[in-house]
Structures are given as C-alpha cells and as structure tokens.
Simulated assay, not measured.
Amino acid sequence: MIRNVYCVGRNYKLHAQELGNDVPDEPMIFMKPSHAVVSLEESVLALPADQGEIHYEGEIVLHIAQEYETGIQVNELVDQMALGIDFTLRDVQNVIKKKGHPWTAAKGFKSSAPITSFIPFPGTDAILKQDFTVIKNGIEVQRGNVSDMIFSLQDIVEYIGTHYGLGEGDIIFTGTPAGVGPTVSGDKFELFWGEDQLGSCVIA
C-alpha cells in the first residue's frame, strides 16, 4: 500500500532552466495525495481538461522499504523503483506560484501521479548506467539519468527522512529532466527503463 507521496521539484538543472526557475540550494519537496497514484499498465487516464494546459513530467520513483534512520544508505532504505509521470496543471501552477499559494491544486488532482509496476532497485551504482525515457505518441520527449540530478538519491532520502520522516510504503518522485510539455486527449505515453517498457497510458 502506498502511504506518503513525496516529490522533488527542480532536481534537473536543464528542467529548471526551461521553465525559467532558479536552481534550488536544497531539495525542494512537495507532496501529492496517495489518491493521485494510479496504474500505468496500459491505462486510460481521465485528467481535468477544463483548467488550462496539463504538462507531463516523467520521473524515477523510489519505494521505501523501512523506517528512515540517520546514516542509513539508499541501498538499505529502497527496495524497489518504478517510473511515473507527475502531471501538472501548468496554468494553475503559474497563478498560484505568483500568489505564493501551495501547489496542491496544480499537482495533487486525481490521477496526477500514475506509476508503472515496481522493479527491484538496482543500487546506486548500477542505476547510473541506465537512462529512462518518456515516449509520447511514438516520439522520445524526455531522457533522464540519475547522474544528471542536482541532488543525489542519498541527498533526497536524507533530506526527506530528516525533515518529514520516511517509512515503509512511502514513495518518492525524484524529479524530471528537460523536455516537459503539454498533453491533450488521445496522447499515448510509454515509459522505458533502458530498452524495457515498464508502463503506458492513453489520455482520455
């Protein structure tokens, strides 16, 4: 069962730049309701189409296996990983950012955090050797690698664990690389870990 859903904002420098955002000095954490998590196994997703542009943001998702303790390493704490999409109501987000309001309205809507099936976490060394990609309507739109993150996986779990707590069943969306963009009804997304497709969906 999924418990807390943590997300890391602006964790790839090129993504921060493409949206005109400053690169953060420490991990920028926000949350989504667990109800936002749905399957990416050939799913059909209904997203709110009446609130402006919806953007896709492909990400690596970590699954936490046990309670966080100071000094614990990622390889001990994380047992599985998946790929996911952080869907964002971009027009809504732009307005609430200017007002200084919380991001929940733009990030926490139903089906805004679809994830693939989990696979065994390969470890912090092996994960650096593999890219993940987001394919939209047959065209690669995003490619990411953990090595391109501003904050490492260890930085992320230490920050979240220290400030908010981490426990079994929590998941972490670790940030998105450059290439985010809008989606509309009929778009098909396929998420690949290397050559292996882990999940897909069609926007209703």
Results as ranks from 00 to 15, higher is better:
residue 6 Y to W: 15
residue 9 G to C: 12
residue 9 G to H: 10
residue 11 N to Y: 03
residue 13 K to M: 08
residue 15 H to W: 01
residue 16 A to M: 01
residue 16 A to Q: 07
residue 17 Q to K: 07
residue 17 Q to L: 13
residue 19 L to G: 00
residue 19 L to S: 00
residue 20 G to E: 10
residue 20 G to M: 07
residue 24 P to E: 00
residue 27 P to A: 06
residue 31 M to H: 10
residue 32 K to G: 03
residue 33 P to C: 13
residue 33 P to S: 11
residue 34 S to H: 14
residue 34 S to N: 15
residue 39 S to I: 03
residue 44 V to A: 13
residue 44 V to R: 14
residue 46 A to W: 04
residue 47 L to G: 02
residue 48 P to E: 01
residue 50 D to K: 13
residue 51 Q to M: 05
residue 52 G to F: 03
residue 53 E to S: 13
residue 54 I to H: 01
residue 57 E to A: 11
residue 59 E to C: 12
residue 59 E to P: 07
residue 60 I to F: 14
residue 62 L to G: 03
residue 64 I to P: 06
residue 64 I to V: 15
residue 65 A to M: 11
residue 65 A to N: 14
residue 67 E to F: 02
residue 67 E to D: 14
residue 68 Y to C: 04
residue 68 Y to T: 08
residue 69 E to T: 15
residue 71 G to H: 08
residue 76 E to C: 00
residue 78 V to Q: 01
residue 80 Q to C: 07
residue 81 M to H: 03
residue 84 G to E: 02
residue 86 D to K: 08
residue 89 L to F: 04
residue 89 L to M: 12
residue 90 R to D: 01
residue 90 R to T: 00
residue 91 D to A: 11
residue 91 D to Q: 12
residue 95 V to F: 12
residue 96 I to P: 07
residue 98 K to R: 14
residue 104 T to Q: 12
residue 104 T to P: 00
residue 106 A to G: 15
residue 107 K to L: 05
residue 109 F to V: 02
residue 110 K to A: 14
residue 112 S to M: 03
residue 112 S to F: 01
residue 115 I to H: 00
residue 118 F to N: 09
residue 118 F to Q: 06
residue 118 F to T: 13
residue 119 I to A: 12
residue 120 P to K: 11
residue 122 P to D: 08
residue 127 I to T: 06
residue 127 I to K: 02
residue 127 I to Y: 02
residue 133 T to I: 09
residue 134 V to N: 10
residue 135 I to M: 15
residue 139 I to Y: 02
residue 142 Q to P: 09
residue 142 Q to S: 10
residue 143 R to I: 11
residue 143 R to M: 10
residue 145 N to S: 11
residue 146 V to H: 02
residue 147 S to H: 00
residue 148 D to P: 00
residue 149 M to N: 04
residue 150 I to E: 05
residue 151 F to E: 04
residue 151 F to K: 04
residue 152 S to Y: 05
residue 153 L to W: 05
residue 153 L to Q: 05
residue 154 Q to R: 10
residue 157 V to Y: 04
residue 159 Y to G: 06
residue 159 Y to P: 03
residue 162 T to D: 14
residue 165 G to T: 06
residue 166 L to I: 04
residue 166 L to A: 04
residue 166 L to Y: 02
residue 168 E to D: 07
residue 170 D to E: 10
residue 170 D to G: 07
residue 171 I to H: 05
residue 176 T to G: 12
residue 177 P to A: 09
residue 177 P to F: 05
residue 178 A to D: 11
residue 179 G to V: 01
residue 180 V to P: 02
residue 181 G to H: 08
residue 181 G to Y: 08
residue 183 T to P: 00
residue 192 F to Y: 15
residue 194 G to M: 01
residue 195 E to A: 15
residue 198 L to T: 06
residue 198 L to C: 09
